[in-house]
Amino acid sequence: MKKILIISDTHMPKKGTVFPEPIRDILRNEIDYIFHAGDWTAQSVYEELKTYAPVYGVKGNVDKEDWSKTLPEKVLVDMEDIKIAMVHGHLGKGRSTPERAYRECEGDQADLIIFGHSHIPFHERKGNTILFNPGSPTDKRRQRRFSYGIAMIDQSSIILNHHYFS
């Protein structure tokens, strides 16, 4: 079984210089992987996260520093018989962020599409694919609470949950 922390839109250090305590608690516990769906803003976010677990990440629309040029627009990962696609969600056609993310990954036959950009937690099935936006742990915008996601993957089964905090 793999336990994955899913975050996006950290916008650090502008929206905080350190991760909030709920995220730090998760990082200190047994996390196998970290998925970051873009808008890191600073390389220091990546550097800190990789001290806890292997990190998969994509470039977001505000990632403009030189280091972010090394980030892909899309990541595809096979894990425990689950195919995961991750994009930020700002590219392509579609009226909504979930629609853009879905269209960007439609040909990848992903079981799970992780995306960010809107800062709005989202968890919905479309056909055989689950669309999941963790929200943001540091920049809730118009949301009532900050949020992140946890995925538990075990031999072709996946359990996804949002976690909220103030």
Rank of each mutant, 00 (worst) to 15 (best):
D39T: 05
D39I: 04
W40L: 12
T41R: 08
S44T: 14
V45T: 07
V45F: 09
Y46P: 06
Y46F: 14
E47V: 05
E47P: 05
L49A: 06
L49K: 05
L49S: 04
K50P: 08
K50L: 10
T51W: 06
A53R: 02
A53C: 04
A53P: 00
A53T: 03
P54V: 09
P54M: 12
P54K: 15
Y56D: 08
G57Q: 03
V58T: 01
G60K: 03
V62M: 13
V62K: 07
D63R: 06
K64M: 12
W67D: 06
S68G: 09
T70M: 10
T70Y: 10
T70N: 12
P72I: 08
K74T: 15
V75Q: 06
V75G: 07
L76A: 11
L76H: 11
M79Y: 11
M79W: 14
M79C: 15
E80P: 01
E80N: 04
E80Y: 07
D81Y: 13
I82E: 08
I82C: 13
I82Y: 05
I84M: 05
I84V: 10
I84A: 04
A85E: 04
M86H: 01
V87F: 04
H88L: 00
H90I: 07
G92T: 08
G92R: 06
K93W: 11
K93T: 10
K93H: 10
G94A: 08
T97H: 06
P98N: 05
E99K: 09
R100T: 06
A101Y: 03
Y102Q: 05
E104F: 12
C105Y: 02
C105A: 07
C105M: 09
Q109V: 09
Q109G: 12
A110Y: 00
A110E: 02
D111I: 03
D111C: 08
L112C: 12
L112N: 03
I113P: 00
F115M: 06
F115K: 01
G116F: 05
G116S: 07
I120C: 11
I120K: 09
I120A: 13
I120Y: 06
P121I: 01
F122R: 03
E124V: 10
E124C: 10
R125F: 11
G127T: 08
G127A: 05
N128L: 12
N128F: 13
N128S: 14
T129D: 09
T129E: 06
T129K: 08
I130N: 08
L131T: 01
F132W: 01
N133M: 00
N133D: 03
N133Q: 02
G135V: 00
G135Q: 00
S136K: 02
P137T: 04
P137I: 00
P137W: 01
T138W: 04
T138Q: 01
R145L: 06
S147W: 00
A151I: 05
A151Y: 02
A151G: 03
D154K: 15
D154H: 15
Q155L: 11
Q155N: 15
Q155G: 12
S156A: 14
S157W: 09
I158R: 05
I159F: 15
L160N: 07
N161D: 13
N161V: 09
N161T: 12
